[in-house]
Computed example of a mutant assay.
Amino acid sequence: MKLKLHLVMAFLISLTSIIGFCLMSLWISDHKIVHFDSSIIASIQGMETPGLTRIMKWFTFIGSAPFVAFLSLFLLFFLYKVLQHRMELILFVYAVIGSALLNQFLKQFFHRVRPELHRLIEIGGYSFPSGHAMNAFTVYTVISFLLWRHIPNRLGRGILIAISAMMILLIGASRVYLGVHYPSDIIGGYFASGFWVGTAILSFQIYKEKRYNRKYKRQRDFA
């Protein structure tokens, strides 16, 4: 019953995310989201202070590819050595690498130029969807999924979800604050990553179930 619930939830997340991403890309292509982007940018950049800029640069750093690669290596070691999770390594690597490749494909497909309104850092490449947003959503969602069952109480699980959500939102907000992404780039990144992670978890759960059934069948045949 629990497996079916996980499969349904993963499917719904993936379906909702792909619909959201398609709508966002259509609104961007039709220039129907310009006012939304401008309003959010004005609100976030209106809070600019030297101290907040340093904080946002830090969140941008921890959402960057080099830091995500370092964090991923640490988590792979933790999963393998501490939690003894062999199969979960497949999910984590598949999700993180696949998300990065999907982001590059989508950037090249949409060719959206970065905003030029008020940049606090300089960066090249295309804007939609945000790679930082996809990195953050993928890594922290998969971490939450893998660690969830190892936390014995609701409070601990609630803290895990709250920290993950905060990291995802702040890394995304830092990109808008620093002037290198439109808010719609961030939301599109979340949707794209949601689709990829949902699909990855769905595939992983189906694989685990088939593997368990084959093992159970062999044990029953030898009994």
Rank of each mutant, 00 (worst) to 15 (best):
M1L: 11
M1T: 03
K2F: 15
S17N: 05
S17V: 10
L26Y: 13
W27M: 15
I28V: 12
I28N: 03
S29V: 01
S29Q: 08
I33F: 01
V34T: 07
V34D: 09
D37G: 01
A42Y: 05
I44W: 05
Q45H: 11
Q45R: 15
G46I: 00
G46H: 01
M47H: 02
P50G: 01
T53N: 12
K57W: 04
F59T: 11
T60K: 00
S64Y: 02
F67K: 00
F67D: 00
V68W: 01
A69H: 06
A69E: 05
F70D: 01
L75R: 04
L76G: 08
L79G: 04
Y80S: 08
K81P: 00
H85Q: 10
L89E: 06
L91C: 07
F92C: 09
A95P: 12
I97T: 12
L101E: 06
K107H: 11
K107E: 07
Q108P: 06
Q108D: 12
F109Q: 15
R112I: 12
E116N: 08
L117W: 10
H118M: 15
L120D: 08
L120K: 02
S127L: 04
S130M: 07
N135G: 12
F137G: 12
T138L: 14
V139D: 09
V139P: 10
Y140S: 02
T141S: 09
V142Y: 11
S144T: 11
F145A: 02
F145T: 01
R149V: 12
P152N: 04
L155Y: 03
I159P: 12
I159N: 03
I163Y: 09
S164F: 02
A165N: 06
A165P: 07
M166D: 09
I171M: 11
L178V: 02
L178G: 03
G189Y: 06
Y190R: 10
S193N: 11
W196C: 08
A200I: 07
I201G: 04
S203Y: 09
F204L: 04
Q205D: 15
Q205W: 08
Y207P: 00
E209S: 15
E209Y: 14
K210I: 15
R211Y: 12
N213W: 01
R214K: 05
R214Y: 07
K215H: 13
R220Y: 14
R220W: 13
